[in-house]
């Protein structure tokens, strides 16, 4: 199952990147998380590991993930080590002065053959909703942080 969602944030790309690359911040905006144990330091870099679970249906679904790509301030990607097979990517692109387009991509596959495929289809509704809410919350968080910085210029 491949899902993606994106949002436009009124903040410079570096600022969004700085926010996202702090693993502890993800608890503030990721929807549906039931577990977010940062196994390495809070600063996300290649090799960082996080045990993450998201409530999907009746189970906390997820994996121990490892970040395999970290290319500031544009791309951050992970793959699963144990748990549900998954790959994900944060993709940040400038889209105007002090504006950033943030895309979150997630590809995952439940085990179990045909039944796993059925679970993927049914569970995608929860995952899609969580991704959408997460991006909206990310936008709110980052824009709230950048508001004081932008306020003097506005005045």
């Amino acid at each position: 199952m491949r899902l993606h969602d994106c949002v436009e944030i009124a903040a410079p790309r570096q600022q969004v990147w700085d926010f996202l690359s702090d693993a502890d911040n993800h608890r503030l905006f990721m929807a549906g998380l039931t577990r977010w144990d940062v196994k390495t330091g809070p600063h996300l870099e290649k090799g960082s590991r996080i045990d993450m679970r998201m409530k999907v249906g009746s189970a906390p679904v997820g994996s121990l993930i490892e970040f395999v790509e970290c290319d500031p301030p544009g791309d951050m990607a992970w793959t699963s080590v144990t748990g549900i097979d998954q790959r994900g990517r944060w993709r940040l692109r400038a889209c105007g002065p002090d504006k950033t387009k943030v895309e979150l991509r997630l590809a995952y596959q439940a085990p179990g053959g045909l039944l796993g495929w059925v679970v993927d289809q049914i569970g995608a509704r929860d995952v899609r909703r969580n991704l959408h809410r997460s991006l909206k919350a990310l936008k709110d968080q980052v824009e709230a942080e950048s508001a004081p910085a932008r306020a003097p210029r506005a005045g």
Binding site: T34, R35, G57, S58, A59, P60, A110, P111, G112, G113, L115, G116, V118, V119, I122, G123
Partner: peptide, 24 residues
């Protein structure tokens, strides 16, 4: 166990609307 999780998930989610709290 991993391969049978989807069947358990379908039964728990669709048939019993199961909710498990406090695993942490």
């Amino acid at each position: 166990i991993r391969d049978t999780l989807p069947a358990a998930w379908l039964l728990a989610t669709l048939w019993h609307r199961a909710e498990i709290r406090g695993l942490e």
